[in-house]
Design a protein around this nucleic acid. Structure first.
Length: 723
RNA sequence: GCCCGGAUGGCGGAAUCGGCAGACGCGAUGGUCUCAAACACCAUUGUCCGUAAGGACGUGCGGGUUCAAGUCCCGCUCCGGGCACCA
């Protein structure tokens, strides 16, 4: 049962997080299936409904046969498969609930500007929203007064080059515009296209002539009065623009291909550059074959063409988006019920706030059948109309889980509130989130939905009015992959952390995660991975022995004596602090390892005393965020029961001790390193040159030649250039 | 096709502003300890030539800029990701 499964997994995950030493404010924990959360998710749904931002309509929707439910566009991958199950998604005509995210298309696009997000994610959102500016206008159907075909184009400047028009096979005028002699061919074409999945429809390459059919009707080009044929073609989509286009093969490659296959004329209306070898030319250039537009550049011609359409009263400037409204209905039992009731008298009626939450019963056959399991549960299904008290039925679909995650961060600000989803004052205090961290897979799902919710709730006065964005900064961390695919709970290819807690310990596992590479990079779990984790555990054991005074001076040590432990310690503090500041955790761990190695050499060389004790304490302080358990235990052993490393302030490096006593000057001859000489950090150029020329290696490399040029970068580099 | 990333030893990676390529770790090799092993500790470990000292080469490929390029510029190859009949 989903409830047992979910509750069990929460316990498991929470226990893992606690053993890992992850620090969260568990007092603020929320669970999306908790009636106290469901209540407010439904309450928010109703506010969106009242504002016209949630609506129900019948539409061709994405259907996943594997999940036996509908999906939002965002949950269908580019290859037409379901992001969750991998099944090929088909289309079904169903009555479903939508959120009107398209109302916010421009804001969602424009407000990306101010976000400190990876450019890649912003680009993905921009592409997804897919704003394009252009014009819509009517094409009069020849010989049919009162009927016109409305088309959308981004290139009204090329209208003189229209040699045919195309409708989507699903267009509502198809029947009307099909002439009797073409009816058979058109119906066969429409039938074939309707059988195809989106994937098939998009992959029909190389058979362009089969991808369209003539309707028998003609329309008039309003720019030059010429009559052109109307075709149906599967490359025109009903869901975008007006579902019909003017075809300008001279400036559109798809139109060019189609025109060539169907032997339709091609007229260029933009002069391609000299030497143009291609077919359709989409770039800028002076208009040609376009009467009063001739000679104008693209932008000017577009403006002039739109002016003409508006003057004639047949068209207008318009903007189209690729973004569709968010389909939120799911034919699922385990989800937040949509709080609506259907009454034969009053139609669609909202459940009153004081009757929330609407909870699904647990005693259902919950397995997917293509309809919500709640439909077969009489006690849930049958209710009374809130308006008239007569028998009515409940909406039995539940909400997309992305609805839950679109406002949880708002609830975190005020999780105990039982009079509202959250107090706007609390939300104003905490939000926007300073630093959000998540996987790239949420680039256009969660991250777009949450942005929409925040904007809508702010406009409705539920969230603070000036809260326009949920997440100020975003960091997309890499994935840990196994066998080439993402390690994830839905794929089931997880490596359990428990086995590492029980063997090497949580701190070793934490160090491994930090050490393995930059946090933004993906990592492949491989054959050597367990050995790397063992290496982290070995390092912690070295620190343990060092901090417990278990490392003995050793005559066997051949290492050079470590002279200035205190100076090295301050350099170490500066280095780790800087690494942590710039999220370079792998080098921070490396610095701790290096410093530990240095302290081993010091101890083995007999160098013990206050400087060493100070150094070890600083090591533990630096390691406290990375290996909290081991450093806490060692700190207590060194400083007494109850002394807590995590309560200590972060040390400051002494600037006077961070600078080195001596620097290594690299001497190059013609850019090749010939010697390294220890120098004072404030050595001057003349001194550098004197020291370099005193080196036998340098003299040999010069071979008696005089340096023609000397490049000095005191104190680290000297390059002697000879001819 | 378009738009982003990326390519550095046997492996993960480091090199932060154009200035010592390969930090740190893994693996490997040799040694100390041990009856033996494990652990631990020490040392070596980019490639090639050389007994050695030392030298040459070397950051996907080809050019370029510069005293100096893993880093900048131009042109490619391959890998990963996103978008793609969006008119």
């Amino acid at each position: 049962h989903p409830r047992e499964f979910t509750d069990g997994k929460i316990l498991e995950l929470k226990a893992s997080l606690e053993r890992l030493g992850a620090v969260y404010d568990w007092r603020r924990e929320v669970r999306s299936h908790d009636p106290r959360y469901i209540r407010w998710t439904q309450w928010i749904f109703l506010r969106l409904y009242e504002a016209g931002l949630a609506y129900r309509k019948k539409a061709p929707v994405n259907w996943c046969p594997g999940c036996q439910t509908v999906l939002a566009n965002e949950q269908v991958l580019a290859d037409g498969t379901c992001e969750r199950s991998g099944d090929a998604v088909t289309k079904r005509d169903l009555e479903q609930w939508f959120f009107k995210i398209t109302d916010y298309a421009d804001q969602l696009l424009d407000d990306l500007e101010g976000l400190a997000w990876p450019e890649r994610v912003k680009t993905m959102q921009r592409n997804w929203i897919g704003r394009s500016e252009g014009a819509e206008f009517d094409l009069a159907v020849e010989g049919r007064a009162g009927i016109s075909l409305r088309v959308f184009t981004t290139r009204p400047d090329t209208t003189f080059g229209m040699t045919y028009a195309v409708m989507a096979p699903e267009h509502s005028l198809v029947d009307e515009l099909t002439t009797d002699d073409q009816r058979e061919a058109v119906e066969a074409f429409v039938a074939r296209v309707s059988m195809e999945s989106d994937v098939e429809r998009q992959s029909a390459e190389g058979e362009i002539e089969k991808r369209g059919v003539f309707t028998g009707s003609r329309v008039v080009n309003p720019f030059n009065g010429e009559s052109v044929p109307v075709y149906l073609a599967d490359y025109v989509l009903m869901g975008y623009g007006t579902g019909a286009i003017m075809a300008v093969p001279g400036e559109d490659q798809r139109d060019w291909d189609f025109a060539t296959a169907h032997e339709l004329p091609i007229v260029r209306t933009v002069q391609p550059p000299d030497g143009w070898q291609g077919e359709a030319y989409t770039g800028d250039g002076p208009a040609i074959n376009s009467q009063w537009l001739d000679g104008m550049a693209k932008a000017e011609a577009i403006a002039s063409a739109i002016e003409f359409l508006e003057l004639k009263g047949i068209g207008r400037r318009t903007v189209n988006y690729r973004l569709r409204d968010w389909l939120l209905s799911r034919q699922r039992f385990w989800g937040c019920p949509i709080p609506m009731v259907y009454c034969s008298e009053h139609g669609v009626v909202a459940v009153p706030d004081d009757q929330l939450p609407v909870l699904a019963p647990d005693d259902v056959e919950f397995r997917p059948t293509g309809e919500s399991p709640l439909r077969f549960h009489e006690r849930f299904l049958n209710t009374v109309c809130p308006e008239c008290g007569q028998p009515a039925t409940r909406e039995t679909d539940t909400m997309d889980t992305f609805v839950d995650s679109s406002w949880y961060f708002l609830r975190f600000t005020d999780p105990w509130n039982d009079g509202a989803p959250f107090d706007p004052k609390a939300a104003a205090h905490w939000l926007p989130v300073d630093q959000y961290i998540g996987g790239i897979e949420h680039a256009i799902l969660h991250l777009m939905y949450a942005r929409f919710f925040v904007k809508a709730l702010a406009d409705l006065g539920i969230a603070p009015k000036d809260l326009r964005e949920p997440f100020r900064r975003l960091f997309t961390q890499g994935m840990i992959r196994m066998d080439g695919t993402k390690m994830s709970k839905s794929k089931g290819n997880l490596v359990s952390p428990e086995q590492y807690f029980d063997t090497v310990g949580a701190d070793a596992l934490r160090l491994f995660h930090l050490f393995v590479g930059p946090p933004a990079d993906d990592f492949d779990w491989g054959e050597q991975t367990d050995e790397v984790i063992d290496g982290c555990a070995r390092f912690l054991a070295r620190v343990w022995r060092l901090a417990n005074g278990e490392v003995a001076p050793s005559a066997a040590s051949t290492a050079a004596e470590v002279s200035d432990v205190r100076r090295a310690t301050h350099q170490f503090i500066a280095r780790v602090s800087d690494d942590l500041d710039r999220w370079s955790y792998n080098t921070a761990v490396a610095a701790c390892m290096e410093f530990t190695n240095l302290l081993y050499k010091a101890v083995q060389g007999g160098n013990v005393g206050d400087d060493l004790e100070f150094a070890v304490d600083q090591l533990l302080l630096m390691m406290a965020p990375m290996a909290p358990h081991v450093s806490a235990e060692l700190w207590e052993r060194r400083h007494g029961e109850g002394e807590l490393v995590h309560s200590q302030p972060w040390p400051e490096a002494d600037p006077n001790l961070v600078t080195a006593v001596t620097e290594t000057m690299v001497v190059q001859v013609n850019g090749k390193v010939r010697d390294r000489i220890d120098v004072s950090p404030d050595v001057d150029e003349a001194e550098m040159q004197r020291l370099a020329l005193a080196s036998a290696k340098v003299v040999a490399a010069l071979g008696g030649r005089e340096p023609a040029r000397v490049v000095a970068r005191p104190p680290k580099l000297l390059n002697l250039v000879v001819a």
